[in-house]
């Protein structure tokens, strides 16, 4: 049965809480590899909680249940020539909107078109007490109360189970073209930085020794930019392949997030995304305690690591721990998924 499963999910949470059973929140499982999944958790399936609740193209807003699959949402939006500007990764599957928001991962267009958190307008959350609470809304601007909605982005379900989500959607660009250019690693950072500033650029990345650029806008503008950069025109799939990590061949992949112009990890990177801000490293063997800049997540490989995210500063750890205690003091939700202590 598909549709509104709110009361079933709330019941499951209340029952688990009563007997001290810990829960793993799971949509379609496209990000099962991400973070640590502790043994012995009982799964809360959000996938049956499907459906578009409200879509108003002229308001640029869509509200869906968290188990709604990306493919379904994309199809609905395409009907009105709209799309999700943050272009979430699919990792070869069909993620749910809940998982997309909880992981907070955005595609290669992120520096130009914004992230998941930028598009999130509001959500309904199942709390660890089994109540349903709503924050934000369907309007573009809302500063009533703390921004609890966005707090859920990247929390990997450790603060509550997402039920419904409202997202800002955007009109599709009239035209889009991608090009591939030769570039040396020595000039890569400067090159990415200068393209970042150009109008119509909506992607600036580096894979297989090539600089990849994406231009979006009117036909005239996109053609002008394509002829200006004198590269080889390639299929738009170069960016979706990068987004879904299709470049990775080894079983060991680390995502490093740093300042876009940093040299750190640049020489070893097998791919660079977000105009320089993300470096993908294979077989890095990087010890989180020796991370010199930014922060990192071990995506694949190194299964001996139960801490898959690099540690927070002590000040941030303290705030995270206290928030976790307030939202979910018994670690009912996604125990250890983000950090081992909770």
């Amino acid at each position: 049965m598909l549709g509104d499963q709110t009361s079933l999910i709330l019941d499951q949470i209340r029952q688990a809480s009563a007997v001290g059973q810990k829960l793993q929140i799971r949509g379609s499982g496209t990000k099962d590899f991400l973070g640590f999944i502790a043994p012995g958790l009982v799964v809360v399936e959000t996938l049956p909680h499907q459906g578009v609740i409200n879509y108003r193209p002229e308001e640029l807003v869509v509200t869906v249940r968290s188990g709604t699959r990306l493919s379904e949402l994309n199809a609905v939006l395409a009907g009105a020539d709209q799309y999700l500007a943050f272009d979430p990764p699919q990792f070869g599957g069909d993620p749910t909107v809940g998982g997309i928001v909880a992981s907070g991962l955005s595609g290669p267009g992120r520096p130009f078109r914004g992230a998941v958190r930028d598009a999130l307008l509001g959500l309904t959350l199942a709390t660890s007490e089994g109540t349903s609470v709503h924050f934000g809304g369907e309007v573009m601007k809302n500063v009533a109360g703390y921004d609890v909605s966005r707090l859920m982005v990247g929390a990997m379900g450790t603060l509550g189970c997402l039920l419904d989500v409202s997202l800002k959607v955007m009109p599709k660009p009239e035209h889009e073209s991608c090009v591939s250019l030769d570039v040396s690693r020595d000039t890569l950072v400067a090159s990415l930085s200068s393209w970042h500033r150009q109008a119509a650029v909506t992607g600036a990345s580096f894979v297989d020794g090539k600089l990849l650029l994406r231009f979006s806008g009117s036909h005239e503008e996109v053609s002008r930019m394509v002829s200006r950069c004198a590269g080889e025109v390639v299929s738009g799939s170069v960016f979706s392949d990068l987004r879904d990590l299709k470049f990775s061949t080894s079983g060991d992949l680390l995502r490093l997030s740093v300042a876009a112009n940093s040299r750190y990890g640049l020489d070893e990177a097998i791919a660079v995304d977000w105009a320089g801000g993300i470096r993908w490293l294979e077989d890095s063997g990087l010890d989180f305690d020796h991370l010199q800049q930014g922060h990192a997540v071990q995506y694949f490989g190194r299964s001996e690591l139960t801490e898959r995210y690099s540690p927070l500063s002590s000040g941030l750890q303290n705030i995270h721990l206290k928030l976790k205690q307030e939202f979910d003091s018994t670690s009912l939700f996604n125990y250890q998924r983000l950090y081992g202590a909770w």
Binding site: D147, V153, A155, L159, S257, A259, H295
Partner: peptide, 19 residues
């Protein structure tokens, strides 16, 4: 004194910057 976010495009853990 606590730093939240910084020069990177994203943050670790919860979105305290938004909060």
């Amino acid at each position: 004194i606590v730093s939240v976010g910084g020069v990177e495009y994203d943050q670790q853990g919860f979105d305290l910057l938004a909060l």
